[in-house]
Amino acid sequence: MRTLLKLTWVEIKLFVREPITMVFTFALPIIFLFVMGGVFGNTPDPSVYRGVGAIDYYVPAYFGLVICAIGVVALPVHLTGYRERGVLRRLRASSISIWALLGSQLLVSFIIAVLGSILVTVLAIAVYGVDLAQSPGLLALAFVIATLSFSAVGFLLGAVLPSTRAAQGIGLILFFVMLILGGAGPPPEVLTGAMQIIGDITPLRWVILVLQDPWLGFGWAGQASLIVVGILLAATALSARFFRWE
C-alpha cells in the first residue's frame, strides 16, 4: 500500500515532467476547444451535434479526448519504454508488484484525467459561459468507467507493442483517427458512411456518448456504457494474458 502510494506520487511527477504527454493530454484538447468553439459557436442546430450547441457538445467530448490521450498515447509509450529500458525488471527485482505498478498507473490516469477535464471545464465556463453537468453523479460514474476502459486499452497496447517506437507510432495514429472520426472532431452527423462506420468502432465514440449524456441531461447512455464496459473487460483480460516484464 505504501509502495502503491509512493509509486503513484512518483509517477504523477514523472508524467508532469514529460512534455510530450503533457501536450497531448492538456494542450491539444484545449486548443481544439477554442478552435471548434470559435468556428461553430454555441447556437443549437437540430441537424448536428445531437441538437445541442457545439460548445456544449465538445466540453464532455474533450473529457473523453483527455482520457483517450492518456490511454492510447501516454500509457503505452510509458509502459513499453519501461520494459524496453529494463525499468520493469528493476522494479520487479525490488519486489514492486504488478499490482502496485498497474494500480499506480490507474490512479495517475485518473488524476490526470480529472485535472485535464477540470481545466477544459474551467476554460469553457470562463470563455463561453457553458452550463455545468446536468447529472453530476452519473457523470462521475461515466468518468470512472471511461478512464478504467481507456487505461485497460493502454495496458493492452503497452503489453503487446514491441517497442517504444511502435507505441509512439501506433498510439498517435489511433489518437488522431479517434479524434477525427470518434466524435471529438467534426460533428458525427456530417461524416460519410464509411467514416461513420470507422468512428463507430473506435472506443472514443462510445466513451464520448457515455460522458455526454449525463453532462447534457440526456440521462444514461445504456448501450454505449455496455460497450465501454465490454472494452474494459476484454482489454483487461488480454493485457493480463500478454503482459511481460521483459
Partner: peptide, 23 residues
C-alpha cells in the same frame, strides 16, 4: 542487475525513497 535502468526523469532521492517503501 548487470543491465537495468530507471525512468529518465526520476530523481535520485525519489528512487531510493520508493525502493525503501517495499519493506
Amino acid at each position: 542487475l548487470q543491465e537495468s535502468a530507471l525512468p529518465d526523469r526520476i530523481r535520485v532521492w525519489e528512487a531510493l525513497d520508493l525502493f525503501a517503501s517495499v519493506t
